[in-house]
Amino acid sequence: MLQELLVAGVAVGSAGLVYVAAAARVVKQYERGVVLRLGRLTGGVRPPGFTMVVPGVDKLRKVNMQIVTMPVPAQDGITRDNVTVRVDAVIYFKVVDPADAVIQVEDYRFAVSQMAQTSLRSIIGKSDLDDLLSNREKLNQGLELMIDSPAMGWGVQIDRVEIKDVSLPETMKRSMARQAEADRERRARIINADAELQASKKLAEAAGVMSEQPAALQLRLLQTVVAVAAEKNSTLVLPFPVELLRFLERAQNQPGSPATPPSPPPPTSAPATELRDEPDELPDEPRDME
């Protein structure tokens, strides 16, 4: 009798262990559990940790609550200004309601991916090429709103959407390169013309100052000569200006100028001095010449 009781106890214990092993579930920290009892949602959302379900009756589905990074496949489209482009993006989303993610949609990941592709093609058709290339923040916000509106009914929240790359045809790339080159050349010409205008104004002012002081023109000429001679790679032929001689002559004749030493007498003055010293020999000279 005792042996039968022991056997029954061991059998019950084994059955209990098997039941516990079959009913025990572990939900991780980044997951939430949704229990479907005979196909019907019951018990609410199970928190992370150890939990029990009825084997054969309950079915526990675990839902990941982490932020999911999903690349959106590249989509071909035509912009509003009739340019063919190929755009790909990346989307960040997470589940905020595990029950809706299990009940409302069959596969929320696939649904979000398809909605992102459709929205990306729609945003391409509504935008210009310049907006796709330079105004991506506004397009990202519009794309996020387009995806987030239906996703909220699936228990999914769109965290961020980013347009990753915009591929253009080779012909369009060459056209844009030529346009950018022409624009840079136009700006260079405008800057050069502005510099010439400013330089001409300064030269006009300098000419006005030099016209009042003629010596300034000669000094500027000498400075130019010094600048050219510094290279030492060419022969410089400098004509001596007559104006410089006139300037020096006027500077010498001005009153108050320092006295110049007397010039030596000409060579013909020596015979004149001899004539004054010996007047008696003058009549003899014609006779000698005869």
Rank of each mutant, 00 (worst) to 15 (best):
V87W: 00
G125T: 10
Q254P: 01
A216C: 08
P169A: 09
L132M: 11
R287C: 02
E137L: 10
A259N: 08
E212P: 02
L221M: 14
D130Q: 06
S127P: 03
F93M: 07
P262R: 07
S263K: 08
P71T: 14
G9C: 07
K62G: 01
G77F: 09
V90K: 06
V26L: 13
V242E: 10
A180P: 06
Q29I: 14
V112F: 04
E137W: 03
A207Q: 12
S14P: 04
E290H: 05
Q104W: 02
V242F: 12
D277L: 11
V90P: 02
Q252T: 11
R61P: 00
Q75A: 10
E205H: 12
S134C: 05
I158V: 14
L236D: 04
T260H: 07
E205L: 11
L139W: 00
A15H: 12
K62E: 09
A270L: 15
V68H: 11
P73A: 05
A199N: 07
G13M: 14
A21V: 11
M146I: 06
F110C: 05
R276H: 15
A182H: 12
D159M: 04
P55E: 09
P261H: 04
N140G: 11
D97P: 04
A21Q: 13
R46T: 02
L2A: 13
P279L: 06
P55F: 05
L275H: 13
D130F: 01
E205Y: 03
G33Y: 03
Q3Y: 09
Y108R: 05
I123S: 03
V53S: 14
A251Y: 01
K126E: 13
L275S: 12
S149Y: 04
F240M: 10
S200L: 04
R32G: 02
V209T: 11
R86E: 01
P55T: 08
Y19P: 03
G153I: 02
S113M: 10
I78A: 12
P73H: 03
V237Q: 03
A21F: 14
L282M: 09
T171N: 14
S234A: 09
I123F: 00
L238D: 05
E281F: 07
P283I: 00
L168C: 08
E205P: 02
S269A: 13
L197W: 05
A74L: 02
L245K: 07
G208A: 15
A204F: 09
L129R: 11
G49I: 08
R220G: 06
L282E: 02
R86Q: 13
P262T: 08
S234D: 11
V20H: 08
L244S: 10
P258S: 08
P241F: 02
A177E: 11
Q29F: 08
